[in-house]
Computed example of a mutant assay.
Amino acid sequence: FVVYDLISRLHHRIANIWDIRAGRQMHKLLGHTQWIRSIRMSSDTLITGSDDWTARIWSVSRGTCDAVLACHAGPILCVEYSPLDKGIITGSTDGLVRFWENDEGGIKCVKNVTIHNAAIMSINAGEHWLGIGAADNSMSLFHRPQERLGSFSGAGSKMGGWQLYRTPQKTVAMVRCMSSDLERKRICSGGRNGILRLWDATINI
């Protein structure tokens, strides 16, 4: 049994996969041409976002790039994995949040949302709730009710079911990072002013 860890961004453009039990490097992931800004790993899938305006999907075990996502008009600052339907969410300096899913062996963008008028800094996804943090000092919450999950199969899109639910009050500094337990209605945000805020989402499902 091998435990993987990916924590480094050597030479800015290279991601490294490490076997932390053996203490050795397993793969060097080459492909990005600019800084790697975000990393998300789930099982054997790794997602990276870069200043080269692309996100890449990698196989952890093989160390290969399986797909390049290139629809943003700016650096991709955050990437997230949707655990329920295995979709991908990306956020960029272009202010767009894009939703991606598998389509006949490939990956396509099935939805893009413009909620914020500044760079998307943080994305945090649960099964039915999604939190977005942005450089315009605000956050937004998306919801995808459980009973609606099957209703998009005709259109071939589950990721398209995410809908804006609420935009909480603005903070006094850009929301650089966010972590949430949205199923329990709790959100923690970190701002550029060095202050952590704990929010009660007060969401009635």
Results as ranks from 00 to 15, higher is better:
46 L>D: 05
147 E>W: 10
185 K>F: 14
102 N>G: 06
59 S>Y: 07
59 S>W: 08
172 V>F: 15
157 S>R: 09
186 R>F: 07
201 A>C: 04
10 L>N: 06
102 N>F: 11
174 M>S: 13
204 N>V: 12
145 P>N: 02
39 I>F: 12
101 E>A: 06
51 D>Q: 09
36 I>D: 14
28 K>C: 11
86 K>A: 09
68 V>L: 03
83 P>M: 15
104 E>M: 06
1 F>N: 13
163 Q>A: 03
5 D>C: 06
105 G>I: 12
98 R>K: 15
100 W>K: 04
85 D>E: 14
200 D>C: 12
55 A>V: 02
87 G>H: 09
86 K>W: 06
72 H>S: 12
59 S>R: 04
106 G>M: 05
174 M>H: 10
114 T>Y: 05
36 I>M: 13
125 A>P: 00
115 I>N: 15
27 H>A: 11
115 I>A: 15
91 G>F: 05
118 A>N: 13
67 A>P: 01
168 P>Y: 07
152 F>D: 12
109 C>V: 03
33 T>C: 00
98 R>N: 11
112 N>A: 08
23 G>C: 00
161 G>W: 01
100 W>G: 08
178 M>P: 07
79 V>Y: 13
94 D>Q: 03
52 D>M: 07
157 S>F: 06
77 L>N: 10
97 V>E: 00
42 S>V: 10
92 S>K: 08
122 S>I: 02
53 W>F: 10
106 G>I: 02
16 N>E: 14
72 H>R: 06
153 S>M: 03
139 M>G: 05
135 A>H: 15
174 M>I: 00
76 I>R: 13
114 T>K: 06
57 I>W: 07
195 I>R: 08
191 G>S: 10
179 S>D: 12
3 V>S: 13
77 L>Y: 08
83 P>Q: 14
22 A>C: 04
66 D>T: 15
77 L>A: 05
183 E>F: 12
142 F>S: 01
204 N>T: 12
124 N>F: 07
16 N>Q: 14
201 A>M: 06
59 S>P: 08
86 K>D: 11
85 D>L: 11
165 Y>I: 01
197 R>W: 02
71 C>L: 08
12 H>G: 00
134 A>W: 00
127 E>Q: 07
52 D>F: 08
44 D>F: 12
